[in-house]
Design a protein around this nucleic acid. Sequence first.
DNA 1: ATCTGTGTTGCATAGTGTGCAACAGTCGTG
DNA 2: CACGACTGTTGCACACTATGCAACACAGAT
Lengths: 247, 247
Amino acid sequence: MSQSIHRAALVLEHVSVRPRTQSEIAALLDVHRSTALRILQTLTEAGLTRRRPDGTYGIGYRLAGLASLAAEQFDLRDIARPTIAELGRECGHTIHLAVLDGAQIVYADKIESAGPVRMHSQVGQPVRLHTSGVSKAILAWQDTATVDRMLAGYEYERFTDTTITSREAFDADLAGIRERGWAVDDGEFEPFIDCVAMPVRDARGSVIGAVSITALRALADLDALEALLPRLAAATERISTDVGWRP
Amino acid sequence: MSQSIHRAALVLEHVSVRPRTQSEIAALLDVHRSTALRILQTLTEAGLTRRRPDGTYGIGYRLAGLASLAAEQFDLRDIARPTIAELGRECGHTIHLAVLDGAQIVYADKIESAGPVRMHSQVGQPVRLHTSGVSKAILAWQDTATVDRMLAGYEYERFTDTTITSREAFDADLAGIRERGWAVDDGEFEPFIDCVAMPVRDARGSVIGAVSITALRALADLDALEALLPRLAAATERISTDVGWRP
DNA sequence: ATCTGTGTTGCATAGTGTGCAACAGTCGTG
DNA sequence: CACGACTGTTGCACACTATGCAACACAGAT
């Protein structure tokens, strides 16, 4: 590993939190002031940091430019796949990854269970917003304007006795999800198929996706699924960390 | 300057365009394969690059995370100020910088001319969309949904004989702007005050702002302002480059 | 089975990144 | 206004790290 490059990366971490003076950087890295200056000069020449008018160093515009250029490479699905595969192996149920994709939520990935039942959810297809755990785990943490936009004209079609059929009831459900940190689908779309779901966050803490564990009630009822919440929490925290979120 | 850190920055530039193999990186940097591997290993450990399942290296999620964390530091106004100040000195007229700010366009900065006339545009205030050069230079390159959203319910108030007073005429004007690359305000808000404006782009080429040169017609008519277009083009290209755009 | 290209590792050393001393500039205090 | 403290900057000697090399492992093509 390259010590100099590692130090440069640490500089970027520190200045991304807030702009820092050269002496602060020297102290944080435990190096001499002249060493800090040279690291900052090189990073600034590359556009990764910039010297602000007040003499502090902040993140440079080119760093944002690089992230933008590479936007197509950031596929949550790729990064989440090993983690949800492991979760599927551990608990033996169907695992879904869904992502917020513009104004809709789509299934991004799916780990089929080894059991006799196949869930008919399809990767790439939109998620039904009012019944599925993943969509509720995403919507619960979106701002009101986004939720309003996504639910404008939405039809709360009844599928089973537990289907939510009004915006008021849906909002109440989302409030409960925010409170406890996870969502459920209590046979709301198909009788006897339940799931639990938790959100995936990006670097800024915004919810960009969700992962769920789904099972036929005869194999694992909601209590059994809720017992898996610690594993689900570990998986979504791992995925969030992998895409840049820090607790 | 640190050669190692400079090389790391070059690696980031190259892999942001598209994912690359380790050997490609070695060739691009003109270093040994083992050197390229160690640079990539250090960047990957820091999350700035990541090794994809196919063995190539792309930009890492943490880089996007750093840019997100630092989003509040990216103030187009700060970066544009020296360039528009120089443009103002060179041509002796009033210079405006406007930015796309959510669903509106606002004046972000203004360089007053040394002449007797003061434009009453105010930094921080919204721009009148159908008459000003900067707003048209921004709107011309927004997607239809954005333009529709911004112009929903908009009142095309007539101020002078040249004011545009319909959405159809406005759209035709925007089409002309796209074709020639710059916008004008031909006394559309106040008689005898004209301007030319050009767009500012971000790293992905999206138009995020515009710069204009405004003058009293008695001092510089539209022909005189159009003669300044090369200087205006150089200024907007400089600002765009400074915020990460590459031709 | 063989060849080629790519990825990886341990190691010696070329050469770079480092800290130091000295200097310059700024700001607060008396 | 002078002084001290702190921060920023530069040239330089050298400590030590980043480098290329050789050797090896592996995958894919022939």
